[in-house]
């Protein structure tokens, strides 16, 4: 019956099929940030690099994209592969998020290993 994941569904990350190599941390994908902060997205240019880092708030933690000035632009969330990405960051892998679209309502990035 229908209703189950088609073959190949698990490899897809977001809007582009992720590429997973070697240690499983060489991922590259495009995604819209969740919880975009208008004050931080204002002034961002296409092609600008944001830092990808873990933000902790008590027992909660999230993977966020941060400007060079330290402002959080938005959160990487709600996609397949998020948990692995966080695990990679925790073990020392570094990523940047290249801004593809930035507006008052949206910030789309390409996440690549830095």
């Amino acid at each position: 019956m229908g209703g189950y994941a088609p073959k190949g569904a698990r490899q897809a990350a977001t809007s582009r099929r992720s590429v997973v190599l070697e240690d499983g941390c060489d991922v590259r994908f495009n995604v819209d940030l969740v919880g975009v902060r208008p004050d931080q997205v204002k002034g961002l240019e296409t092609g600008e690099a944001l830092l990808v880092q873990i933000s902790e708030n008590g027992k909660w933690r999230s993977l966020v994209c941060v400007t060079n000035g330290g402002g959080i632009v938005g959160t990487l969330a709600a996609f397949q592969g998020l948990a692995r990405l966080i695990a990679c960051v925790e073990t020392g892998a570094r990523y940047i998020a290249i801004v593809e679209v930035a507006s008052a309502t949206r910030c789309s990035v390409e996440v690549i290993r830095g």
């Binding site: 933690r61 959160t75 969330a77 996609f79 397949q80 592969g81 998020l82 948990a83």
Partner: peptide, 22 residues
């Protein structure tokens, strides 16, 4: 694990029951 990571990102408590259905 992806669902848990997303819930944590927004301070949401998850009560997750396993299912066979994707």
């Amino acid at each position: 694990s992806d669902a848990e990571a997303t819930l944590s990102s927004f301070g949401i408590v998850g009560r997750l029951m396993p299912t066979r259905h994707e």
